[in-house]
Design a protein around this nucleic acid. Structure first.
Lengths: 214, 214, 214, 214
DNA sequence: AATGAATGAGTATTCATTCAT
DNA sequence: AATGAATGAATACTCATTCAT
């Protein structure tokens, strides 16, 4: 409760003032508690930042967990990738300023950054693992692929958040396509229906799904 | 001359002391010039860091420019990707500590980081463009793909530099494969010369798929 | 308490080291507190100086407030002017070094200088107002006269403090005369009770002139 | 020539940037010479400032010297005072910013300030001496009076330059009156026409002149 | 649990001045 | 006479952190 109150305040202050300019005093004031109290819940400014990052990813993960429960049997990997990308995009956009402060401005080596990243990695890992299990994709080194794709996605979102260049649709479709191709995603019924080589534009992981249904 | 002398010193000091701990005074002393002189060539510590990053990428680009002149007709895209990845890997390894300081510890938002990245982006862009021209690959949005792959590569290298996990061969092969698949690389004469699965260079998964289906 | 402690230390340091040479660290050390503590009570060195000037005038004003309570009916304007001049002189002499640092060495534009002056202006204004009310003096533009006389007095004291040239008596008498003449002071009951030339308090030159001619 | 060129540049820079912010480099650049050259003509920044102040008063003195040559026999003291005040006022207004920088912002103790003041003191001294010689005024201690009046005038002008409050006419008349009364100025024909005590508003030095002519 | 007064280490940056050319 | 690259001393100010109450 107090903890959340402080994190909320920290979030506000961080976005308003910027990473370096935000002081612990600012946070305390915004949270309407004394400076010492902040230190009762977070050992240091670094820890506070880590808490913020952790919460960011927790919220992100929570956001991802909800839709799947919709009841549908099981989405194909391509669809799940698209959902992930779209969700990541939406989340990044919705948390524009915070995302920027937390991940663009701060060093990657910051405590908590890596840990927070782990959360996202788990989501991606889960997705890849499921795909491999169902035979929808093939990757030589999953861990490597996960790292690669995660950073690719992250990088693109950082850029997009910073200097928007593409409409949501295009960006989501494009990144989904890149990820699916990199992972060699074939779709849930891939073995049954081989595809013609180079049959069109990239980023049609989802597109493919649609095609199949058509 | 003076500029290089200062950059050299900064590089040394940075690696020894760490990003935050390295003071301008340290740099000046290491360069055997007065503090003011450092400021004569770099307006601020941030600028100095930016200078370091720029030089890092310039050197990397210079390293890449050499091999192509070897006289061989023209390498295929897949081969060029592999070379790029290998070169990036080797360069990151060779500059381990510096690379870490410059790109892992520092915030991405640091002045010069983005600009420095531009150099690398150009290399990748060139590669993609050549591939498209020769029909070896297909991408819907080249700019997006370049961003994505660059960040993916960069991220993997940062991780690998930080906690080596895979042997060079495996990492290079793995990343090359991911990039080639994402780009839909088919090889210079893909239709003419189908490759046996797993034969030779990794990462032409998509090619394989197509081959199989063909 | 802390504030006074710091002001006391600042006063000492300022007089010892000089305006520019005195550092905030010196002040902190002299006050036996940490540097940060000084900044807790004064936002900047400039503010600290302003605090010193304000206190200077407050003490001066306090000094002036005492004598009047002596019970005597009401001193005439001329006498009050003389008292003011004498008090200002004595105070400037007693605080020689500080006065010099605060008002001679520092720029007039310094924050607090003008505000501090306000205190002195009020004293002079009070005196002029009382004189006008009792018909003892006539001034076209009181505010202008106050400014003029205040600066005249201040300037003379600064000079006198810096290079003493005249004995106290002469200086006080001289300045009192100048002020009274400028204000056209005639004495409390001037018309009724002509004063013999040179009788008593100095500085009723104009009155004298007139008297003589009358 | 070079000297004037540098002083001109310094004047510009000082007014634009402010006293503390103006650097020797700025001055050199504005004068289109190298930094070293500035030091060829002025030993230090302090000296440069002193040069500026000296020139300021020289110009002021030059301005005062011109009118008298108009041919009229000899102006009365009151008239000369009025002219001095008016000239000082006009000059202060015309050089508003420079005057402020040179005399309001800088410490009084600055080298050159006192010397520069000497120039003004000489003008005032000359005026007082002439008045005494012609019997138009009476002062006990001329040196003291000069100091007093000079500071009074200076102070009023500084205030007026900083926060204009009175129209020129009023200010000049008011200050002239104060000075004349303080000096006991009677007018060139004072002995002939005695004035009634307290006969009206202050500041009628000039007024008196008019009366005479009427 | 909460407070907030006190701490004090830590450093980038400026700029007047010099002097070899 | 002029230059301008090089110098390096010098300091105000911040703010994360602590701890007595």
């Amino acid at each position: 409760m107090r903890r959340e109150q402080i994190l909320d305040a920290a979030e506000r202050v961080l976005v308003e003032r910027g990473l370096g300019a935000a002081t612990m005093a600012d946070v305390a004031e915004a949270a309407a508690v004394a400076k010492g109290t902040v230190y009762l819940y977070f050992e240091s400014k670094t820890e506070l930042l880590a808490g913020l990052r952790a919460r960011y990813f927790e919220r992100f993960a929570a956001m991802l967990d909800d839709p799947p429960d919709e009841g549908r049997p099981r989405a194909g990997t391509a669809e799940r990738v698209e959902r992930l990308v779209a969700a990541a995009y939406d989340f990044a956009r919705a948390n524009h300023a915070l995302h920027h402060m937390l991940f663009h401005e701060a060093g990657f080596g910051e405590v908590g950054h890596a840990d927070a990243f782990a959360r996202a990695r788990a989501v991606m890992a889960d997705l890849v693992e499921a795909g491999r299990a169902s035979g929808e994709l093939t990757v030589a080194d999953p861990a490597l692929a996960i790292d690669f794709l995660l950073h690719g996605l992250h990088g693109v979102l950082v850029e997009a958040t910073h200097h928007p260049r593409l409409p949501r649709r295009r960006l989501v479709a494009g990144v989904t396509g890149l990820i699916c191709q990199a992972l060699g995603v074939t779709g849930p019924a891939a073995p049954t229906r081989p595809r013609a080589p180079g049959s069109g534009s990239t980023g049609r992981g989802p597109g493919r799904e649609r095609d199949r249904r058509a």
